[in-house]
């Protein structure tokens, strides 16, 4: 997973994911930024025996839900990153 070369990105931001600082770029969705930073497991294991993870990428499947700034069940694929955004989910 990587950010594609040859695209000039402006406005780097920092988000806090389960207490860790991760850099991203304004305009990216939270799901994509998390995936690019190596996060693949978005909770769910305790309930279903497997991890949730982005699947449809466009707000349909609800498998990329995370807590954003204290608000639970936010679709990370439909949410754009913002500087200082605090994100939490169970990495297992």
């Amino acid at each position: 997973m990587k950010r594609i070369k040859g695209i000039e990105r402006k406005e780097q931001v920092e988000i806090i994911v389960n207490g860790k600082r991760i850099s991203a770029y304004r305009g990216e969705t939270l799901a994509a930024a998390l995936w690019a930073a190596g996060f693949k497991r978005f909770g769910g294991k305790a309930l279903k025996g497997r991890y949730n993870s982005p699947f449809c990428g466009m707000g349909v499947c609800f498998e990329c839900l995370v807590t954003v700034n204290g608000v639970p069940n936010i679709r990370s694929c439909m949410t754009l990153v913002e500087d200082g955004m605090e994100v939490e989910f169970d990495e297992g």
Partner: peptide, 14 residues
């Protein structure tokens, strides 16, 4: 579609 979203809207190769 998710691959396309990552590529086209985020510039990220999953």
């Amino acid at each position: 579609g998710a691959v396309q979203v990552f590529l086209k809207s985020n510039g990220i190769l999953p």
